[in-house]
């Protein structure tokens, strides 16, 4: 039971990291990323492939972060002149292309068989039986570190400029902000966090295949952010927990309704997740918690 609890908390940490990434890309900069799963896959595969080649865990993680951030920056260039809808489709198309590469370039990615036996970092130091607990502790430390880093970014002048771009890029440009540079940076920062989450995913499961980086990952991340309140990292932690409890709680659904097959129960869970997302959008669009603002919310909230 402790093992199960540790596993759940590790999943929550990964979900929180993905949520942080979306929160800076979408929540702060207003840039929508429908291809999160693809970037996650890039991070995980970079870390996995390098580790298999004998690169140590920390360097592999750093490489995953840098690669994902660089690719994110490239993809975000699609918004040079355009509104955010185009970024949504570009990232989605990117994600599909990543999946195709993962499935077909067998020499690099192992194809649909995936990559097995990814070496875990520090496993010699920590030992096998306590490793899960150590890994959870590492995840929590990393989540905290990313939280404080992002928080300082969000409160910095850079963060304010980002929100200005989100609210009205023409005005921001008129005020002398380099809109494109701000957007590319924000997307790259988000990409770096996704890359970190991807590397942790690869090390935790020690096995990855293309099926794990499909659209549902993106939907979960959006769900966490929307439930938690777009733009609020503190709310996000609550949001990610709520989504994970929903996901894990409904896993036991099939014990209560035995007339469903496993496949049907799985679909039903996903239907509930999707419906939940739509209901939150309709009835509580601001989520559980609202975003950080400099002035008091009473006077500041004139944009909606």
């Amino acid at each position: 039971m402790t093992g199960y609890f540790v596993a759940i908390l590790t999943f929550v940490s990964l979900a929180v990291l993905l949520g942080f990434a979306l929160n800076i890309q979408w929540g702060q900069a207003g840039m929508i990323n429908f291809g999160l799963a693809g970037f996650y896959g890039v991070g995980a595969y970079t870390a996995a492939i390098l580790s298999k080649q004998g690169v140590d865990g920390v360097s592999a993680t750093v490489a995953a972060i840098v690669t994902t951030a660089a690719i994110s920056a490239l993809v975000s260039l699609a918004t040079i002149k355009l509104r955010e809808d185009y970024l949504a489709i570009t990232t989605l198309a990117f994600s599909e292309s990543v999946r195709l590469v993962l499935m077909n370039e067998t020499w690099l990615t192992g194809g649909t068989n995936g990559i097995r036996d990814i070496p875990r970092p520090f496993v010699d130091l920590v030992g096998g039986e306590r490793y899960e607990l150590f890994f959870l502790a590492a995840c929590i430390v990393l989540v905290a570190a990313v939280y404080f880093l992002l928080d300082s970014v969000i409160r910095s002048p850079f963060g304010r400029a980002l929100r200005a771009v989100r609210e009205d890029d023409v005005v921001a440009a008129t005020l002398g902000k380099d809109v494109l540079a701000l957007r590319v940076k924000a997307f790259a920062i988000g990409g770096a966090v996704i890359g970190l989450a991807g590397a942790l995913h690869a090390f935790y499961f020690t096995y990855i295949d293309p099926g794990e980086f499909a659209g549902f990952v993106t939907v979960y991340a959006f769900m966490s952010v929307i439930v938690g309140g777009k733009g609020s990292n503190r709310g996000l932690v609550m949001g990610a927990c709520t989504v994970m409890i929903l996901l894990e709680g409904t896993r036991f659904l099939k014990d209560f309704v035995p007339f469903f097959t496993a496949q049907q129960a799985a679909s039903l869970r996903l239907i509930m997740i999707g419906t939940g997302l739509i209901l939150v959008l309709i009835f509580r669009p601001s989520g559980l918690s609202s975003e950080y603002r400099l002035s008091s919310p009473k006077t500041a909230d004139t944009t909606s």
Binding site: I32, A88, F222, I226, I271, I273, G274, I278, L281
Partner: peptide, 10 residues
Amino acid sequence: LVASMGVAFV
């Protein structure tokens, strides 16, 4: 847009 993605998922 996000809502329409939710609709697709459902």
